[in-house]
Amino acid sequence: MTQKAPVIISSESPFASDVFAKRHPALIDRLVAAWPFGPEQRQALFALAEEGVHGVIHPLPDRAADAGLWRDWGSDLYGRPWAEVPFLWAESFFYRRLLEATGYFEPEPWRGIDPFAPFKQAELAGEVVSAEIAALDDVVGLAEAELGQALLLSSLWGNRADLGFQITAGRGNEASGLVADDSARLWELLRSEAGGTVAVVADNAGSEMVADLVLIDHLLTHGLAREAVLHVKPSPYHVSDATLADVADCLRALLLSKGEARAVGERLREAAAIGRLHVRTDTFFCAPFDFTAMPGALRRQFASATVTILKGDLNYRRLIGDRWWEPTIPFAGVTDHFPGRVAALRTLKSDVIVGLEPGALTELNARAPHWRTSGTHAVVQVRS
């Protein structure tokens, strides 16, 4: 295994510092504006925003069902400023504290209410998803290989407002934003091992989940997978991360559409009914650790898959570790801990990156100084 690089501490990264100083307070303002929260909830949310910028980390209240777990997970971190602990841990605990503040785990009436649902639903009802769904009728006539690549790229870029099926159908050039592209290796792997299980670890709800579902349908319909397992978060997380309810909403959007989109929805519903499509979750997906710490049952699931496709920035950080890796270190060397073959489809929105060619790194640093965090670049990386 490759020697590990230093863990990213929030204060050492301008991007991470900005998350706590600006993004989290802005998110809490949006939540307060979107919901009829009572005085206690509002006070708890504003206190969390203030604590994240100027205070120290406080543990969950003892009454919380998972207070013991988090007490152990943060035993040496409580009482320290948020900016002085690992960014991956701090970000994860922020969202757990946010759910505590809104009453997500408390008795009625707020129990189980996704505080991010208004934002997810607005995206699902918006023009981006409508354009993706409509454009399915345009791409369905492509040759299988071309169609598969179009759907793969749409899944990769699915949560970018100016991209989607229309662009991958040939009206634009998404490939120009790829700084590493192993997509040919991924298709070769899927074809050589056709008929097995493909696992997809989801990232975002909304337009990205719609694109993920369409890609899964393609793999099942063309025999590249006998069954697909879609892994989602067990509770709301990182604003837009997909839960089972979000998968259901996206499938419903397909089923309420016309043409090819509705046909996709019907095939997916049938696949679920006969056991070819499974939706699963695990509490580990909301734990503050990278994938080296995953439980044995989850490891065995991924080990048995033909390939596990990890979606998005957070899963990438958890796959390789949220560390200051040298960007040219090989992807395979920092993912050899993962059980089984793995592919990462990730739009870059944080500091960590590996697997780049030296020339590409030099060019990116000169041409686009904020390429790591701007969301304008992406990778498809495979360890087979």
Rank of each mutant, 00 (worst) to 15 (best):
V7Q: 10
V7W: 01
V7G: 07
I8A: 06
I8W: 01
S11A: 15
E12W: 00
F15M: 15
K22I: 08
K22D: 11
R23H: 13
I28S: 11
D29S: 13
R30K: 15
L31P: 09
A34V: 00
A34S: 08
P39V: 03
A44D: 02
A44Y: 01
E50P: 07
H54T: 12
G55R: 01
G55P: 08
G55Y: 05
I57K: 04
L60H: 00
D62L: 13
G68Q: 12
L69H: 11
R71T: 10
W73T: 07
G74C: 05
D76V: 12
R80P: 12
V85P: 06
W89R: 04
A90W: 00
Y95D: 02
R96N: 06
R96K: 12
L99V: 05
P109T: 07
W110H: 11
G112E: 10
G112F: 10
G112R: 11
P115V: 00
A117K: 11
A117W: 10
A122N: 15
A122M: 11
A125S: 13
V129F: 08
E132H: 15
A134D: 15
A135F: 01
V139W: 01
V139T: 09
V140D: 07
L142N: 01
G148Q: 04
Q149I: 03
Q149M: 14
S154L: 02
S154M: 08
L156K: 05
G158F: 05
G158C: 10
A161C: 12
I167D: 13
N173I: 02
A175Q: 15
A184M: 07
A184P: 12
R185C: 06
S192F: 04
G196E: 00
T197H: 07
V200P: 06
V200W: 01
V200T: 04
V201K: 01
V210R: 08
L220G: 08
G223I: 01
A228F: 08
P234H: 05
T243H: 04
D249I: 00
C250I: 02
L254A: 09
K258W: 10
V264D: 04
L268N: 11
E270G: 13
A272P: 13
R276W: 08
R276H: 12
R276S: 12
L277V: 07
H278K: 14
H278S: 14
V279D: 03
T283N: 09
F284C: 03
A287P: 04
P288Y: 02
F289C: 05
F289Q: 06
F291N: 05
M294A: 03
G296C: 03
R300W: 04
F302P: 05
A305M: 00
L310D: 03
I320G: 06
W324C: 14
W325H: 15
I329T: 13
P330K: 09
T335L: 02
D336H: 10
D336W: 00
H337V: 02
P339L: 03
G340F: 00
V342P: 10
A343R: 01
V352M: 06
L356T: 03
E357K: 07
A360F: 02
A368T: 14
R372Q: 15
G375K: 11
H377E: 10
V380A: 02
R383D: 06
